[in-house]
Amino acid sequence: MGFKRVPQKYSASINEVTIGVGEKAIKLGGENVKPLYSFDAEIANAPKVGAEITDEGYDRTVASLAAYYEGCETIADIAKKAAAMPGADFLAVNLEGADPNGANKSVEECAAVVSEVAGAVDVPLVIIGCKNADKNTELFNKLADLLQGKNVLFVSCKEENYKNVAASAGLAYNQKICAESAVDINLAKQLNVLISQMGLKPDTYVMNVGSAAAGYGFEYVVSTMDRVKDAALAQNDAMLQMPIFTPVSSETWSVKETIVTEEDIPEWGSRDDRAVQMEVSTAAACLAAGSNAVVLRHPESVATISKMIAALV
């Protein structure tokens, strides 16, 4: 008997969420098939790739990044250069320096950085908070006001601060928000339920269901994303139909494969190459498992992953 191919498309679909305004605005989600299964049905919006800078601009200890940003003097210069990476759909500003356990930059200092960045680029903006939920609540409240009308995505709110972030950035300032859970399907759904019960519409938030650098318990990430997309599509679970947003670089730039210098372990070879390899392999795996958007720091990673997406979708 001949093989009969039955396209596996679903009547349910992932919500479509728009980030940014004007011609360069992007849409996340919208598909009614499994991740990258463009052979089952047309994928409404290809997954998107973001270029990331931090409140300090970029990591000057990475030679190839320093080479890419050569000549950039201000944060505005760096933002423009990052937004211009071939394959980048949006710009993410990671305010890691706001962490009270780190540089503890004030809300005003961060606002100054963000406002300079926002003035310099016209691509969609994503604000990534620091590791401290309380500080992010303060930070997002100020920045959501500052960036009104720009339809910015705030990453992330968690169980401890979703009420404030959803009420402020989400409801009061009409920005987009991201609900973050740590590789826990039940909590991922619960957080979406709680946010929806606050009155946010389904097309105003995305979720980060958690991630890990490849090799660091990544199989849990895959099974979580798999189960989430299965519930969203096969079971038409409206509380899991949010697009998945994954800040890959925050994971990969903190593992030893990326941090250790070539002087310390010569047999591992170039640190820059390793950093790109970690970003590319993690991002590719996230996209295959279900991410609708990934964030990357290195121009080479952005170029590689965007080419991969273009070839598959």
């Binding site: 339920v193 019960q197 679970d237």
Partner: peptide, 12 residues
């Protein structure tokens, strides 16, 4: 397992 558990499942 027809629906994924969340603490608020009775409210959905």
């Amino acid at each position: 397992n027809h629906s994924l558990y969340a603490d608020s499942f009775l409210e959905l």
